[in-house]
């Protein structure tokens, strides 16, 4: 069994504190869901656990089976068993999906050893089929020109191949149509075993119709403000988040509250600047 423990986690980007004391514990065999309105720090939590270089942890701990995750580099975290299915995975032109995932799988083997090509192709083809992805996927460049749905499936495919112990799936359901959602749901459900702990970040109840979650957390203002069972989701689905805000005494749930008008003006300037090609 493995356990991921997040203790009083604070993190900032630039000079803004985004995570303001997150506490969470996930065991293998469990599925947790995190919900919460936009801009409350859900993706930031996922990125900080994975080790994205933009974020600075200012306080708190992350432990995987007692080992200090914050001391590990991003790749060490992956090899230690952490996985993040990203909300916005990068596109990498010129690198094929199969080259990438093969390289990733080899990093799990002893130095100098490589997975047999036959073995790899068999596993890969099987995963492609199960996710109902197109057959030319191995030869396409990593996420380049992928539709939103294809990117999400490609994240799940990587999870299937890499077999992590703790996997965070950030909005794996956003932008999926009903059929695709069912495919992704089935595949994740199939992976729900005693060997994996899952953390699903989502806005929608419908994902949790497909993937059963044991525990539900609500995130606001950069921390978890409410935890409970699946009943929370049903209530959010019908009533929204206001009752939780009232319960915990929060007016604006976002971490960074911007003046809407200022932001709009800034937005146009930034665009103009970006277009001014020298």
């Amino acid at each position: 069994m493995s356990t991921l423990i997040i203790k009083n986690l604070h993190a900032k980007v630039d000079d803004n504190e985004i995570l303001t004391g997150v506490n969470l514990e996930i065991d293998t065999g469990e599925t947790h869901a995190i919900m919460g309105p936009n801009g409350t720090g859900k993706s930031t939590l996922a990125s900080v656990v994975m080790g994205h270089p933009k974020y600075d942890v200012t306080e708190g701990e992350i432990l995987l089976d007692g080992k200090n995750v914050l001391d590990m580099s991003v790749d060490e975290r992956s090899r230690a068993g952490l996985f993040l299915g990203m909300q916005h995975p990068a596109e990498v032109p010129g690198v094929t999906n199969s080259d990438f995932i093969k390289t990733a799988m080899n990093t799990r083997l002893e130095e100098g050893k490589t997975i047999s090509l036959f073995n790899f192709i068999r596993q890969y083809d099987k995963a492609v089929e199960e996710l109902k992805m197109s057959e030319d996927l191995p030869h396409r460049y990593l996420n380049e020109g992928f539709s939103g749905g294809e990117k999400k499936r490609n994240e799940i495919l990587q999870m299937k191949m890499l077999k992590p112990r703790i996997a965070i799936l950030d909005e794996i359901d956003s932008g999926l149509d009903v059929d695709a959602l069912k495919v992704v749901g089935d595949n994740v459900t199939k992976m729900q075993t005693d060997d994996i702990g899952l953390l699903l970040i989502t806005h929608y109840q419908r994902l949790l119709d497909y993937i059963k979650a044991d525990k539900v957390h609500v995130m606001m203002k950069g921390r978890i403000v409410k935890s409970g069972n699946i009943d929370i989701i049903k209530r959010i689905d019908t009533e929204g988040y206001d009752w939780i805000k009232e319960e915990v005494g929060i007016e604006d749930e976002r971490v960074i509250v911007e003046d809407e008008e200022d932001q709009a003006v800034l937005g146009t300037c930034a665009t103009k600047e970006a277009l001014d090609i020298k």
Partner: peptide, 8 residues
Amino acid sequence: YYLMSRGL
């Protein structure tokens, strides 16, 4: 970051 998050 993306590639490293897969262990590279």
